[in-house]
Each structure stands twice: as structure tokens, then as C-alpha cells.
Design a protein around this nucleic acid. Structure first.
Length: 464
RNA sequence: UCCUCAAUAGCUCAGCUGGUAGAGCAUGCGGCUGUUAACCGCAGGGUCGUAGGUUCGAGUCCUACUUGAGGAGCCA
């Protein structure tokens, strides 16, 4: 007998109607009465459940089935029957129900709403709930969409190192990687930690960004992207920060900041469309139960051009807004969250690129503009989530880059290979970093980054 | 790291100005000819986050700590 997935059933229902098939999955709930019972069965392949009907008269183990606790894994044989009047389009009249793995009555997932906080404490079971089933299927699809988007455009996927000596200057605190015995760390004659005795013979950490390495491959393949885990040891306690997250970092050669923004906008629209087209049930669920404005917002993103504004213009708008901001609006200081929110949520009500920030608040590798005060940087701000992308045109002029490294008191030797890229046929080039989880939050309407990562790592929390 | 709030049954919460704990859901048992967050009846279930303190008496007041949430900083 054919073993059918619930996805197949829903997608090609007509092929199975009035046929006897076999399905297997996990019991979400069971309701029973004297003569008949109903099982909500989910087999993992599809967001929706299939309803299994079982009757005392026709099922030999009726009593036993009634007592299956939620969560039990079962195998069902039965006939597919159309039910046009009912809530669900069809159901399965069971002729045989076998237990594969029994659950227990203390199964933590009840037939009721659970708080996301509680579900985080059972992160190993939460993918069995509607919300997390939807989140993580969408996460998977969007990851695929990102590869698809870049591969269709001839980008080369580069695996930049996870363990690295490059700390990308200011991108964030690193987790250090060492095989030292923490109770017995060797020191040199200056009483400094002697990293020459460590595993790699130097100080190493987990990557905070693959960008610098990405640039090297960009200078060979022209268009590249990275997509991998990123680690930041920042003591950030917000709904938008995690210590381990995934980042997408494309880098394009012979390209300037405008090309960079075009790419970013095209990519965001592409992945949103991909989710809407390939996970309609999940997206409908988000729109109904997580964020009632979701479709409205996403439609607005997909169908409108993103706004563009320079940092200086943004300061101007904020100053003239008449809003009573908690933090003063001063040219030269970074935009505060309240400022960013005002611009993207109140002024434009859609994604906004803010460009050309003062050089002193941005990283050393960003290209100096002709005004000598600002750099060719861009942040993409979106309503609700805030900064979802940060990018820039990179400084390709060797003398400018060296001068900047000196100004900031950094050591040129540490960047020898990065400077080489400018020495040996450097071109203008640009790139950006997309916070993958922030994109998932934006697409699903989930408001906490801990709920879009299977087993999230945040300060004081690395369970599972 | 800072500010604010929270922690009571498996879950979600109530518990007033201090007088030794309650509901709904879940679970168990029973009932119900088709339910769909099923319904009806009965039952079991709590050293009130931890450690101190004030008090005749603390879930309730005070202190510290832990964990969580929201906001801020940092960023993606």
C-alpha cells in the first residue's frame, strides 16, 4: 500500500479520494466519544493536519487508540473521504491504526495556547507546534531562496572561515577560540598571554563577519556571497540580537553603492515573494495569528520602490519633525533606534536606505566620499525590525585605506592581505550584510529573534 | 551593561491595606452516535524562583542573587 505524505494528500487530493492509503505521523490531539473518535495527525511534511476518523465498530483496538496521548507516533491505514461540508476538505476513515512510539500523559504540549517564553524552555518540542512548524519551514525555504537568488545571478557561494584571526574592526566582540587549559594559561616575559603556545600559535576567535575574506573572493569571482553562522560575544539583551546568528554577505566587483542597494532591494523582494509563493499555508497562519498587518506590509514592500535618503537629509528631517526625541539629533552621532523608527515607520512607512554616514561612526573599510566627511555606507531600515541590512562601497584606493588604518591606530601589518587586494588589480566594489534571522522575523511577523532560531544562543542562555 | 516589570499547580493566571492558597486548561476516571481550542460530571495535583531579614504571623513588606520579559546601548 502506498505510503502517502500529508503534503501529497492536500496538494493532489483528487488522486486519493476513495482510495485506501497509509499515512504516518504524530498525534496532535484525539477526541473520542462512545462510537467514534477523531485524531488530528501531523506528519511533518505539511503545515496542516489530516483528520483521522476511527469507529468502535470497525477498529479492533478502538479503546486503545482513544487513550493514545498527544505526541504519539502512529501509522494509519484508511480510506480518503471527501468532506465538503466540514472544516477540512477531506479526512481518512481508518481501517487500521498502529502505534509506532507511544507518548505519555505528561507530554508538555497541550491543546491550548502556550506562551513563547514557555516554549523556549522546551525548544526540543516546540517545532511540533503550529507556530514553530511554520517558522522553521519558512526559515528553510527562505534559506533556499537566498541561494537560488544568488545562484541564478551567477554569484559564487564562498565558505569563509568560522575560526579566524580577523576581527573586522568594530563588527563586535569575539568569542575566543583556544585549547588553553583555563586554569593554566601560559604568559610571556611581559606577562601577556602567550598565544604562540596556543593551538593556532596566535589569537583566534569565531567569525563576526566573513566580509574581508569575501572581498578576496570577490576580486576573483566578481560576484560572491557568503551565508553562514556568525558569532558575537556582545552582552546584548534585546529581541533582535543573538550570540549566534546567520548572515548573508554578498560582495560585488566593478560596482558602487547604488549597485549594492539595487541588489539588496531585489534580494529582499525576491525572498519575500518566494516565501509567499512556496509556503502559502504558513504565511496565511502568520497573517491570521501572529501579525494581522503582515500581508499588507509585505505587499507594500514587494510592490513599492524602497526609499532613499542620505544621513544628512535624515538628520534634517528629524530636526524639522518637531518630535520630542529622547536623544538629541546631532550631525555626527549615529541615528538612535527612535530616530530610525521615526524615519521608516512614520515618514516613509516602508523600507528606507539611509546612505552616506559620517566616516567617524562607520568602519575603516568604507569608501570615503568626495566631501571627505562621509563614507559610502548604507543601512536598510524596515518598519518593525529596524536595521536589517548594513553595507557599503569599500575603499579600493590603497593610499586612502592605508591612511584610514593609520588614523584609527590600527596596524597595517594585520591587514597585509586585505591591502594586497587593492595592490593587485583592485576595483571599486561593494557589499552588504543581511541578518538572516531579522529577515525571517520581518517575513513571518515574529517579534523575537529567539523564536526564529531552533536553539537560540543569547547571553546567559545556551541550553540544548 | 543600564532602566522598568515579572517569577504562585504541568500550562495561563487570580490572590485587596500581611492572617498559613484558588480558577480555567491539561492529566486520571466516568458519560456522550461526528468532533474539530469538542462538551458534561468527579478526582488527584502547590516546601508560592533562591538565600537572608522585619513580624506573634510573609505568596503579600525589605535586601541580595538567579532567571525571564519589555525598552536602551552595541549591531545584523
Amino acid at each position: 500500500m502506498e505510503n502517502i505524505t500529508i503534503k501529497q494528500l492536500y496538494r493532489n487530493m483528487k488522486d486519493y479520494v476513495n482510495k485506501t492509503i497509509k499515512v504516518s505521523g504524530w498525534v496532535r490531539t484525539i477526541r473520542d466519544s462512545k462510537a467514534v473518535g477523531f485524531i488530528e495527525l501531523n506528519d511533518g511534511t505539511f503545515f496542516k493536519n489530516v483528520q483521522i476518523v476511527f469507529e468502535r465498530e470497525t477498529l479492533s483496538n478502538f479503546e486503545e487508540v482513544c487513550k493514545f496521548p498527544s505526541g504519539s507516533a502512529i501509522i494509519v491505514e484508511g480510506e480518503v473521504v471527501e468532506t465538503p461540508q466540514a472544516k477540512q476538505p477531506f479526512e481518512i476513515k481508518a481501517s487500521k491504526i498502529e502505534i509506532e512510539g507511544l507518548s505519555t500523559p505528561d507530554y508538555p504540549l497541550q491543546k491550548k495556547r502556550h506562551s513563547f517564553e514557555f516554549l523556549r524552555t522546551i525548544a526540543h518540542l516546540r517545532p511540533r507546534t503550529n507556530t514553530f512548524s511554520a517558522v522553521f519551514r519558512v526559515r528553510s525555504l527562505v534559506a533556499y531562496a537566498i541561494h537560488k537568488f544568488f545562484q541564478e545571478r551567477d554569484f559564487v557561494y564562498v565558505h569563509t572561515p568560522i575560526i579566524t584571526t580577523s576581527d573586522c574592526e568594530g563588527a563586535g566582540q569575539m568569542f575566543w577560540v583556544s585549547t588553553f587549559d583555563p586554569r593554566d594559561i601560559p604568559f610571556d616575559e611581559n606577562n601577556e598571554v602567550d598565544y604562540t603556545k596556543d593551538f593556532f600559535g596566535c589569537k583566534t576567535g569565531l567569525t563576526v563577519s566573513g566580509q574581508l575574506a569575501g572581498e578576496a573572493y570577490c576580486m576573483a569571482f566578481r560576484k560572491i556571497y557568503t551565508f553562514g553562522p556568525t558569532f558575537r560575544a556582545e552582552n546584548s539583551n534585546t529581541a533582535r540580537h543573538a550570540s549566534e546568528f546567520w548572515m548573508v554577505e554578498p560582495e560585488i566587483a566593478f560596482a558602487d553603492l547604488n549597485d549594492d542597494m539595487e541588489l539588496a532591494e531585489e534580494m529582499i523582494k525576491y525572498i519575500i515573494n518566494y516565501a509567499l509563493e512556496n509556503a502559502p499555508e504558513e504565511m496565511n497562519f502568520f497573517n491570521s495569528f501572529i501579525d494581522k498587518e503582515l500581508f499588507k506590509r509585505l505587499d507594500n514592500v514587494v510592490n513599492s520602490d524602497f526609499a532613499h535618503i542620505t544621513y544628512t537629509e535624515a538628520i534634517d528631517i528629524l530636526k524639522k519633525s518637531g518630535e520630542n526625541f529622547q536623544y538629541p539629533v546631532i550631525w555626527g552621532s549615529d541615528l538612535q533606534t527612535e530616530h530610525e523608527r521615526y524615519i521608516t515607520e512614520q515618514v516613509f512607512k516602508k523600507p528606507v536606505f539611509v546612505t552616506d554616514y559620517p566616516k567617524d561612526i562607520k568602519a575603516f573599510y568604507m569608501r570615503l566620499n568626495d566631501d571627505n566627511k562621509t563614507v559610502a555606507a548604507m543601512d536598510l531600515l524596515v518598519p518593525g525590525v529596524g536595521e536589517i541590512i548594513g553595507g557599503s562601497q569599500r575603499e579600493e584606493r590603497l593610499d586612502y585605506l592605508e591612511r584610514r588604518i593609520d588614523e584609527l591606530g590600527m596596524k597595517k601589518e594585520d591587514y597585509w592581505w586585505y591591502l594586497d587586494l587593492r595592490r593587485y588589480g583592485g576595483t571599486k566594489h561593494a557589499g552588504f550584510g543581511l541578518g538572516f534571522e531579522r529577515a525571517i522575523m520581518y517575513i513571518t511577523g515574529m517579534t523575537n529573534i529567539r523564536d526564529v532560531i531552533p536553539f537560540p544562543r543569547t547571553p546567559k542562555s545556551a541550553d540544548f
